[in-house]
Design a protein around this nucleic acid. Structure first.
Lengths: 243, 243
DNA sequence: TCAAAAGTGTTCGGCCTACACCCATGC
DNA sequence: GCATGGGTGTAGGCCGAACACTTTTGA
């Protein structure tokens, strides 16, 4: 804390020379949803750098001198999955002095929502990256377990208010799958009839004429997210508000 | 974005040596509420460093090598207001390459809620800092106007769900003042009868036997925030949920 | 006695909850 | 024809929105 006995004017003439450079990294909690397994997952890989090389870690990178943190987060996401223009959100910063035993590194936590079906499997495999169920995350490097926990909380909060869940599903999806997804994210049981009513009454889901027969004989209608209608709703102050 | 033609293994063995040091700063959007004026305010001061010296700016500082970002944000808050252990929340990071014309600086945006009545006025004045109404913020340095806007949005979201408003009021406050505060934060009109019902029915406000007669002849009861009862409620999943 | 702010109560409608049954189809 | 998952409908209650009147007291 500042000492009042010091000369205040001097104190307060902070210049760029007072800034001590620090390493800045991003760590990206990449969420995916496996529609067959109906499980919410996080992409992890084995850290290559000492200390703690070989341990499981979030996908991260240093922020380069000529890129924004957001760009860095997108860059590594593309590098590992082949996907571009992905849903990406900053959720927290980690700056404890001793957090990284290798150096003074501040890390900006981002989370991403991707469609697992669109990722490039060869790429993911080439980095020895693996998808883990959110409830079966192994011990991670540094404070990455904390990051996953924080990201999940924010994801839960966000998905209660905005329909971001669609970023985790294929373009065409069924209501039962969507229900399963929300149950996975929020880790609660939802009444299927009430869920269907709520989600369809808002009007931003278009029913298609095709059915998905992969998980039942009757088949479930495919739906598609309608961005235009959704934006209309937001303007009028629409809120999902799931339990 | 990464080039797939490059050797993936090499790419992926990122080491600490690849990290290029960057200046890291915090900027603190310090909110206060003047109970007399009934206005939500932000503390600003005139920047001392070129470029843009003399222009109004948020209270900020570089993050030192031996402190966390949160500590730095608290440190400058204490330096300017004399207050310690203040409500402080990280809300966004700013890392565009060209954002600060003076150097490559990443800034972590924090917002604070303080009780104006507890601040040390001499300190504030000694730094030529001034309180501005949120709807009358002047042109600020760099991207600080954006920061204020972002912080206000997050504050609105947060205060709809958690009763953080109390951090802006004196220990003892009246319901009419609390109502005014919420109207200022949310920038909406609220029905006083419904507001009173909602806020009192939750049970985390204790009515005192004294009245505030400063703004009416009848006088309004003072209330006090009851932290214990509030924590009880949270455990059971309580949500404020104001409009 | 009256102006000005504080405090209380009621009605209405809508939305959320809980819950049960029919539908389509592949085997 | 039956098992399996998909889809629809309804009744009840609670909560939030809208709204009007009484209370207190200093001037």
């Amino acid at each position: 804390m500042s000492e009042n006995s010091e000369n205040k004017v001097a104190q307060h003439n902070e210049t760029y020379k007072d800034g001590k450079p620090i390493l800045v990294a991003v760590d990206n909690v990449i969420f995916g949803f496996d529609p067959e397994e109906e499980k919410l997952k996080v992409l992890l890989f084995q850290r290559q750098v000492e200390p703690q090389a070989g341990n499981w870690s979030l996908i991260g990178s240093f922020v380069g001198p000529d890129e924004s943190a957001e760009f860095a987060a997108q860059r590594i996401l593309t590098k590992f999955t082949g996907l571009k223009d992905v849903y990406l959100e900053h959720f927290q910063s980690y700056s404890e002095v001793e957090r990284d035993p290798g150096a003074r590194v501040i890390s900006l936590g981002y989370y991403s929502l991707i469609r697992i079906d669109e990722q490039k499997d060869e790429l993911v495999k080439s980095f020895n990256a693996k998808w883990f169920n959110v409830d079966e995350i192994p011990d991670l490097v540094i404070d990455h377990n904390q990051m996953v926990e924080d990201a999940l909380h924010i994801l839960q909060d966000d998905s209660r208010r905005k329909p971001i869940g669609f970023n985790l599903l294929p373009e065409k999806f069924t209501i039962p799958k969507l229900l399963k997804l929300y149950q996975e994210i929020l880790q609660v049981e939802l009444d299927d009839r009430n869920f269907r009513k709520k989600i369809l009454s808002a009007g931003y889901l278009d029913r298609l004429d095709i059915k998905d027969k992969s998980s039942s004989k009757k088949g479930a209608y495919f739906y598609q997210f309608n961005v235009e209608k959704y934006f209309e709703l937001i303007q009028n102050g629409y809120n999902l508000l799931l339990p």
